[in-house]
């Protein structure tokens, strides 16, 4: 049995861990509230974006704009969003797993090349020596600004139009609620009309002013930006929710552990007293 001093030391250490996990949980909860609000406020914007895109793409040909055109695929890019830090449950590893699955599918079944664009340190570190990373974004703010999304989408459009990538997928974590987040994979480029959105089936066709090409050149990159922005804020909200839940159960576990340690501490104390007593009695008997 461990000595009383050892157990005491262990209790102190678990207690200080508990303090840390509890503080992290509180911080995550506060941040979550903000990013959850942002994610919810942005929802009408994305629904509308999808709706308009569906309206537009339903009425035009694929070959009107390079971002819509399907071409022979040689290299597939994966953009994925992870956090910069750990201690957030399965949040990072779920995204990484999905990316690995995607990479395997692309490489094995169709013998295409793959490349990565990483957002977040955890994902970058994991794939550092495993795959080709074209570009990386780290230290994304807690409430990502639109400019971050703009930078990422501009780079993607560049990579795509220059022919470095022929297809781009996005992997991110969708935020449903505090207890439910889901990893999603969707195709960014070439832009595919969203399936879920309903198309307004008015007979009239759209007027494009000044021309369809020019309008699409303005609208399509905007759509891409919007999707990436949405993915960024949803992922952030998911990260905080995940961290909060993980730290909550870590705090609970620490409490359980402290209870158990306290029990064995008391046992050890009792045992020491009993031993002392029997030593005294034994000593007294020896004197007689």
């Amino acid at each position: 049995m461990a000595s009383m001093r050892d157990i005491k030391r262990q209790i102190t250490s678990v207690e200080s861990t508990k303090k840390i996990t509890r503080a992290m949980k509180m911080v995550a909860a506060a941040k979550l509230r903000k990013s959850q609000e942002r994610a919810e406020n942005a929802k009408p914007f994305f629904d509308k974006t999808k709706e308009t895109l569906a309206d537009i793409t339903a009425r035009i040909d694929d070959d009107l704009h390079p971002l819509l055109e399907k071409r022979d695929v040689k290299k597939v890019g994966y953009v994925f969003i992870t956090g910069d830090r750990g201690l957030c449950g399965a949040y990072n590893s779920r995204v990484i797993k999905e990316v690995e699955k995607g990479l395997k599918e692309t490489e094995k079944e169709t013998e295409k090349e793959t490349a990565l664009i990483t957002i977040g340190k955890k994902g970058r570190d994991y794939f550092k020596n495993k795959a080709e990373i074209i570009s990386e974004y780290i230290e994304i703010e807690d409430s990502p600004g639109f400019s971050t999304a703009t930078n990422i989408s501009n780079e993607l459009v560049e990579l795509y139009t220059e022919g470095i990538l022929d297809e781009v997928h996005l992997v991110y974590t969708e935020f449903n609620s505090v207890v439910s987040q889901k990893v999603e994979r969707l195709q960014l480029l070439p832009i595919e009309p969203p399936e879920s959105a309903e198309v307004n089936d008015s007979e009239e066709s759209y007027l494009y002013d000044p021309s369809a090409e020019e309008v699409l050149s303005a609208v399509l990159p905007q759509y891409l930006k919007n999707v990436i922005f949405g993915a960024l804020i949803q992922s952030k909200a998911s990260e905080f929710a995940s961290r909060m839940t993980a730290m909550d159960s870590a705090t609970d576990n620490a409490e359980d552990m402290i209870d158990k340690l306290k029990l064995s501490y008391n046992r050890a104390r009792q045992a020491a007293i009993t031993q002392e007593l029997s030593e005294i009695v034994g000593g007294a008997e020896a004197l007689e």
Partner: peptide, 8 residues
């Protein structure tokens, strides 16, 4: 107005 899409 007639259906129209354009960039801003």
């Amino acid at each position: 107005h007639q259906p129209l899409v354009t960039g801003l």
